[in-house]
Design a protein around this nucleic acid. Sequence first.
DNA 1: CATTGTTTTAAACACTTGTTTAATATTCTT
DNA 2: AAGAATATTAAACAAGTGTTTAAAACAATG
Lengths: 204, 204
Amino acid sequence: MKKDTTTEEKIKEAARTVFLTKGFEGCSSREIAKAAGMNVALVNYYFRSKSQLFQLIFKAAMEDFMESMIYVFSTDQPLEDKMRIFIEREYDFLAKHPELPNFIINEMNREEACSSNEHSEILEKIAETGIFNDCQKAQAEGKMRKMNLISLTLLVMSNCQYPVMAKNLMQSIHQLTKEEYDEQIVLHKGYVTEMLVQYLFPKQ
Amino acid sequence: MKKDTTTEEKIKEAARTVFLTKGFEGCSSREIAKAAGMNVALVNYYFRSKSQLFQLIFKAAMEDFMESMIYVFSTDQPLEDKMRIFIEREYDFLAKHPELPNFIINEMNREEACSSNEHSEILEKIAETGIFNDCQKAQAEGKMRKMNLISLTLLVMSNCQYPVMAKNLMQSIHQLTKEEYDEQIVLHKGYVTEMLVQYLFPKQ
DNA sequence: CATTGTTTTAAACACTTGTTTAATATTCTT
DNA sequence: AAGAATATTAAACAAGTGTTTAAAACAATG
């Protein structure tokens, strides 16, 4: 009889939550083991080293990070609607996984880490959705403001991710409770959607 | 005869660069000491502990973080111009101190750290510039889109800081060199300025 | 049941961590 | 120049780090 969740999976789950909240440097192998209710040696038995376990978690997190993006882009709708839906979904997703953007960005900044790795597969996956072609087409037809893809993604990511990343900072500055800030984010989502749509798809 | 830079200052400088690039957990006392060309014991001789030294650095960084903001807001100009100048200056500032936003946001997320501390003094300092009153007045006159101060700061900070914070991520995704991305940021600054001004100060 | 192979454990390894101590060197004051 | 105050050093401390080892517990197979 196999347990519903095997030891290996328990460790992986524990590692995910610990790594995502504290970062690679901010936790120890023993802490992960304890969070999984296991022994330290077991962590290395299944994953050989803290680094290897981390790279596993990081890769999975990176995929989650891009998941919702790809889903919306694949749908068949007018670009402007896609944008609205994307922002809606991205705010939803980030409400459930608020640690993700910080985690990804931080660990990308660790020199030892996955900086120079090949994360361009992500771009390819996004490209496969045809979103980039759609944008270029819309830009050629004058329906969308002309702008390279980097700035386009930057605009969207900035306005979706930063509000989640800066939660503690903004709470502290503006003296808000967690709940108050969460409400604020919902409000902010509306502003962001309006602003981006107006700017990217100007009416005449 | 006093040296041009005293030992205490050398350590503080070294601590600043090390802390800002690697974070509190990402470095050791000995690393800071070595970066300053000093002994480990000297670090604690002058600053008693790693934590106390860190809090010193963090506080100073936080003030830097808000410095340019306050300066521009204090000037006497139309709001729309202030916004343009602010974005210009903020991009300038962040080009010189690209590690700052990530550092601040990360360390605010460390539970042990300065999360619940009183950073609301910052808000007071900004309030002293009268910028918030100006905004409310402009909003009452219909010259500026109605929006609470939290969303206002969020909009501006998102679009100024995120592009710097996500540098390594964006480089990796879009396969850019540092120099190419720096050029991209200059381009992006233009889009951001236009977008924010158009949205916050709609014509007719 | 005996003998595989796989999982789990406690203990140890060498090394780094933050911090302290006690001795030495330097500077300042009178 | 003598003595007090300050600055600097190397060494030690206990605790924690990632990783390994070798023995035990377990499961599976013949």
